[in-house]
């Protein structure tokens, strides 16, 4: 295969179809849930990836999105709340021939399982983490989540949430993630484009998917989805391209030379050359961090989507396997009898 980005995962011998990736289980999300769109996109894009279906595993925790593995005709595990990254780490580090995907939500990944998420990212295990962020707890019926906005009125915060939300992309950068992207459930083309890049990334890829919960937090991302408002609200990042958006690309992101901050400005002939060119591969995380939090947290205006950061760093599982090989190279394949005997022995004769 061209490029062979996942050299250890076997390829499917034949052309696959989306239907092959659909399990026989009836999908049971609420009608209108954004999860349907993500499921359809994943089922539609995996055949194109061309990996052997039996070498793909979906692991999830608990929450609405964590039902995902049941609907994929691959290997899968629906585990317990927050622990999917840990379980997937064990699987991926013991089996470098697998393509391991984690499906999680904002509560699962950032609240009860926050510790596992940050450590998976820092280790750079070969995991593709799809974080369905709907900024609410769905399965437990509508409590605020760690990404809910301050002041959010929910069943557990009738007078408004007192908490400052996490910005998952910023958090991931702080956790030394090597691949961080943000996309929208309803933008199939963009979603698939991001998934395609995540799938072939060596190491942990975190894809934050803004996902609509039409029951408990309907319209949370409406401003990014409505065609009229999206033009001004969404900044589509493309590596190597100037960061411009709005009608006819009339707005752009520049770095304020006095403060170092990123600013959104109308693009003019005078400042066009100053518009920041997106470099996802920049090893210094500073600009990616600034971009991850460029949006106004209340209005979501100026939300960058796309691949914020994609840098090369050796992945944990390949290196772990490498140490095993190196040990055999250095000491020979383990000799059990010699190990058990050790160096200090004595013999008792008849």
């Amino acid at each position: 295969m061209p490029g062979d980005p996942l050299p250890l995962v076997p390829w499917a011998g034949t052309r696959q179809s989306a239907t092959e990736f659909k399990s026989d289980q009836e999908v049971r999300w609420c009608p209108g849930c954004g999860d349907y769109a993500v499921l359809a996109a994943v089922q539609g894009f995996l055949p194109e990836l061309g990996l052997a279906r039996e070498n793909i595993v979906f692991v999830s925790g608990i929450g609405c999105s964590s039902r995902f593995p049941y609907y994929m005709n691959t290997y899968g595990m629906h585990s317990i709340h927050g622990r999917a990254p840990a379980i997937a780490t064990g699987l991926a580090t013991s089996r470098t021939d697998l393509s391991v995907w984690v499906v999680t939500g904002d509560g699962d990944a950032l609240s009860i399982g926050g510790n596992h998420l940050i450590h998976a990212l820092r280790r750079n295990v070969n995991l593709k983490i799809l974080l369905f962020n709907n900024r609410i707890y769905g399965l437990t019926k509508g409590q605020y989540s760690p990404t809910s906005e301050t002041g959010k009125i929910t069943r557990s915060t009738p007078m408004g949430s007192l908490e400052t939300p996490f910005n998952p992309a910023s958090l991931a950068i702080g956790a030394e993630a090597t691949f961080i992207a943000r996309t929208l459930d309803s933008d199939r083309h963009h979603l698939v484009d991001v998934l395609r890049q995540a799938a072939v990334h060596q190491g942990t890829a975190l894809v934050e998917i803004y996902q609509n919960c039409n029951i408990f937090n309907d319209g949370a991302f409406a401003v990014l989805k409505d065609k009229r408002s999206a033009q001004e609200a969404v900044i589509r990042l493309e590596h190597g391209k100037p960061i411009r958006f709005g009608h006819a690309g009339g707005k752009g992101v520049i770095r304020d030379t006095a403060t170092g901050r990123l600013r959104v400005v109308p693009v003019t002939a005078g400042n066009e050359a100053d518009v920041l060119v997106h470099d996802a591969h920049e090893t210094d995380p500073g600009t990616a961090f600034a971009l991850s939090r460029l949006a106004d947290p209340h209005t979501l205006h100026h939300t960058p989507i796309g691949v914020l950061r994609q840098v090369e760093r050796p992945d944990y599982d390949t290196q772990m396997a490498g140490q095993l090989d190196a040990a055999v190279e250095r000491d020979g394949k383990g000799d059990l009898a010699a190990l058990l005997a050790g160096t200090d022995t004595w013999t008792v004769k008849e």
Binding site: M77, T89, G90, T93
Partner: peptide
């Protein structure tokens, strides 16, 4: 390691058994 043993020091006790369970799968 030359016996093919993977020893993974996890971030906490829960991750430790989680990783083991993932490897069992």
């Amino acid at each position: 390691k030359n016996f093919g043993v993977r020893a993974f020091q996890a971030e906490d006790e829960i991750a430790a058994i989680g990783a083991a369970l993932g490897a069992a799968f």
